[in-house]
Design a protein around this nucleic acid. Sequence first.
RNA 1: GGGCGAGUAGCUCAAUUGGAUAGAGCACCAGCCUUCUAAGCUGGGGGUUGCAGGUUCGAUCCCUGCCUCGCCUACCA
Length: 666
Amino acid sequence: MYLKQQTVLKERLRAILREQYEIELPALVVEQPPENKFGEFALPLAFELAKKLRKAPRKIAEEIVARLAAEPLAGFASFEVAGAGYINARLQRAEAAQALAKEMKLAPEELAAKPLHALVEHTSINPNKAAHVGHLRNAILGDTFVRLLKAAGNRVDVQNYIDNTGVQVADIVVGLIHLEKMRLADVGALMERLTVEGERIDYYCWDLYARVSQWYEADEAKKAERKQMRLDTLHAIEHGGNETAEIADKIATAVLRRHLETMLRLGIEYDFLPRESEILHLHFWNLAFEQMKAKGVLYFETEGKNKGCWVMQRPGTERAEAEQDGPDEDAKVIVRSNGTVTYVGKDIAYHLWKFGLLGKDFGYRKFFEYPSHSCWISAEEGEADHPHFGDAQAIYNVIDSRQADPQANVVGALMGMGYTEQAARYTHFSYEMVALTPRCAMELGYAVPEEDQGRAYIEVSGRKGFGVKADDLIDKLVAATKSEVDSRHPELEDAERAEIAQKIAVGALRYFMLKYTRNSVIAFDFKDALSFEGETGPYLQYAVVRTRSIFRKAETTAEQALTELAGVEIDGMLDGEENEAIWAVWLRAGKTSLLLEQCIQTAEPAYLAKHAFQLAQEFSNFYRKHHILTEENAAKKTLLLATAAVTQRELVRSLQWLGIDAPEVM
RNA sequence: GGGCGAGUAGCUCAAUUGGAUAGAGCACCAGCCUUCUAAGCUGGGGGUUGCAGGUUCGAUCCCUGCCUCGCCUACCA
């Protein structure tokens, strides 16, 4: 509703500017006034025009308002000049509410103008240890963005990139072979033993990874030897076709499966798992290398520290003419002097594939089953019958901000190859890490040096085994919500209480990760994460539960209540100070599609989280002031019921996009 | 050294990307459950937006300089 009216207003204004002043403004700013008493839209454009027209802003505003008032504009009640030259527009409130009540689905004009085939990559955890809170932020951000893109009408493939042949996996293999003295058969036995004992393989690896990392450094005399073991192991894994690689594959696959299970607890699913092993073995790089050489993106360095390497100019390091003598020491090495390719090189090849520019595809086989679809994994030789991924028009990589540089290198390579359209639709969906507060770290039993105790946060470290595991956090949340539900609803069956607790725990966790904007570091603390009051997921769910309770008692449904509003005369019932709380709900509810658009444009889900919270707040305020079930005026009661209904509809819709499900009772 | 990000209430964060009196939550204080669920609501205190300049009708936001903090900057992956 709101977005549509905003468009109507903008079009009218553009027409007026053309006719009256012969001016075309590239961007017409429409704001939301700080308080509803100023109206629903605020336009500061008179300030901008003042200089061009050499007139006082207030005078210009008056002229425009006169033109706006000259003929009726659909949905608007009035326009006025305010302050030094603001133009405020007021909606015809009853009309707006009636229109919003009818919007059972998102209106077509509020969906993406041009639906795209988008590809979102998120999670991408090294399959060598348990997922931790930082990975949860990644997956929750990515999954939420997927839901937003889909809601706006785009086709979306969800990918989770698996670095199954990297050093981190190699470290675990070194641990199994050299510390635990295991062979392939022993690893199989270990995994069976863990299953029997109900232990998690990813937890086992968490500890082993920390042990190996320390072992590398523990003995000064053996440091070099041990680092060489690590390198040899890595190369064996990369090469494939040997026992070491088989151990790596066995363990990485098992850990990956655990990651999928952990994420599924939060409602997060994937379509495809491309693995580095296939990027290597199917020789994606060879094709990328030929293409890059042919297009002059790579050049062979003959001097300086990078002598003998194929290098690429780093984006943003273009040198002045005068300095162009000698080698570019800032250049990024893509192929080492020993002929092996770096990570960035492989990443470029992978991204050419994502856009369908490589000229080669993965093999595919089924890996994991969800109730509604299968998740596929890359394979050298896949199944004959399979879906096809890649060929995306837009890609979003949910990767933490520390990898901004390598990401920029990939974009730089695409640009250099002339793929400017693809480069423009390449989004590094960057976010800051989740760190721990010093207090939280000490609670977990980690020794925090005195000089670090005053810091706002401490970075987690997989190598030190320092962090909060995802499943531990989810378990803790579920336990806390379960005991709360148990005490509030002793009349319910235990299974039902468990289900409610599960939904609340997920709501709390997902909202916690989404309420911060992407580039703020989350200083994690159990106290905040386990809070269910104030700006939290449960607060939003509670608002929905209250509306459900109302419709149960009124023996109707939200849909019915909204339908019935059409037959009622509500003119005047949304105006005046005594009705402000009612209108505030309708206005906020009408902004959902506007927020959807903003979130996608800025790749920032936090705005929707805030919107949902504000709607819940407006509703709570309304709920206290207006008692629905005891309202005696029939028309008024219909409006109040519809107000609860529109809250429920928009809140449930927003929460669904955030991946949060509201229970029936809580 | 260079690049990126951050610095806002006691704490954790917002601020519609340059707009009206800088807002929320937590914590603290005072109230509100025989009326639709108190995981709630109302009120209160709390701010020189790191510092100093500049740009303009208007700056938390843009520019310059400085201070503090974090991250990135390998022929590691």
